[in-house]
Computed example of a mutant assay.
Amino acid sequence: MGAVMQRSMPAASRLHSEAIQFRIILAATYPFFLAAAMVQRVRPGQAPRRGLPAVRRSVFGEAKAMAVSAIPFAFMG
């Protein structure tokens, strides 16, 4: 049982390290995604799609969603 605990510790440590790296990258890239979200709001948008309700997040929520969807690509490879 002790051997199982020792094997899982490096995996837990690695997950913790990756979580910290994700937060650092999120903090570093968030301003760029915030600027992109602001630009999207200012420029004329596309016509709304028919049949789908218009869901609009805050600019900050949109920036976080863009960052969270793009950052995993940094961990690929």
Score class of each variant (00 low, 15 high):
23 R>V: 03
9 M>W: 10
5 M>E: 11
6 Q>S: 09
51 G>T: 03
70 A>I: 06
17 S>D: 14
65 A>I: 13
49 R>G: 10
69 S>M: 01
56 R>G: 07
77 G>C: 05
10 P>W: 01
47 A>N: 05
72 P>L: 00
44 P>E: 05
43 R>A: 10
61 G>M: 00
60 F>T: 15
64 K>D: 06
49 R>V: 11
67 A>K: 00
55 V>N: 12
71 I>K: 00
40 Q>A: 13
75 F>M: 05
62 E>W: 13
70 A>G: 01
34 L>C: 03
28 A>M: 14
10 P>D: 01
59 V>W: 12
74 A>C: 05
35 A>T: 09
34 L>G: 01
48 P>K: 03
19 A>M: 11
15 L>K: 15
76 M>I: 05
24 I>L: 13
44 P>R: 05
28 A>G: 03
15 L>R: 15
53 P>I: 10
68 V>N: 02
71 I>T: 05
75 F>D: 02
45 G>T: 07
62 E>Q: 15
20 I>A: 02
49 R>K: 15
21 Q>C: 10
14 R>C: 08
30 Y>T: 11
50 R>A: 12
3 A>Q: 11
66 M>W: 07
26 L>R: 10
42 V>A: 02
21 Q>P: 05
42 V>N: 06
26 L>S: 02
54 A>H: 13
44 P>W: 06
59 V>S: 14
32 F>T: 12
15 L>H: 15
38 M>E: 04
14 R>M: 07
40 Q>T: 09
76 M>H: 07
61 G>E: 02
75 F>H: 02
70 A>K: 00
59 V>C: 13
23 R>N: 09
64 K>L: 15
21 Q>E: 06
20 I>G: 04
8 S>F: 08
65 A>L: 10
55 V>G: 04
48 P>T: 03
61 G>Y: 04
25 I>M: 10
58 S>C: 08
39 V>H: 02
25 I>K: 13
31 P>D: 03
60 F>Y: 14
5 M>S: 10
57 R>N: 15
61 G>H: 00
38 M>P: 00
26 L>E: 01
64 K>P: 06
11 A>T: 11
8 S>Y: 10
23 R>I: 02
49 R>I: 13
64 K>I: 14
10 P>V: 12
22 F>M: 06
33 F>I: 00
7 R>E: 15
51 G>H: 03
37 A>V: 03
34 L>R: 08
13 S>N: 12
21 Q>T: 04
73 F>C: 08
19 A>G: 09
16 H>L: 12
49 R>H: 09
44 P>N: 07
7 R>G: 09
33 F>N: 00
61 G>N: 01
44 P>D: 03
53 P>F: 14
66 M>G: 02
18 E>R: 15
35 A>G: 05
23 R>S: 04
37 A>S: 13
31 P>S: 05
37 A>D: 04
30 Y>I: 04
24 I>D: 02
3 A>W: 12
25 I>E: 07
19 A>K: 03
66 M>R: 14
24 I>Q: 13
30 Y>D: 05
62 E>F: 02
76 M>W: 09
40 Q>D: 12
5 M>C: 06
36 A>I: 12
39 V>E: 01
4 V>F: 10
53 P>V: 08
40 Q>R: 11
63 A>F: 00
27 A>P: 04
77 G>L: 02
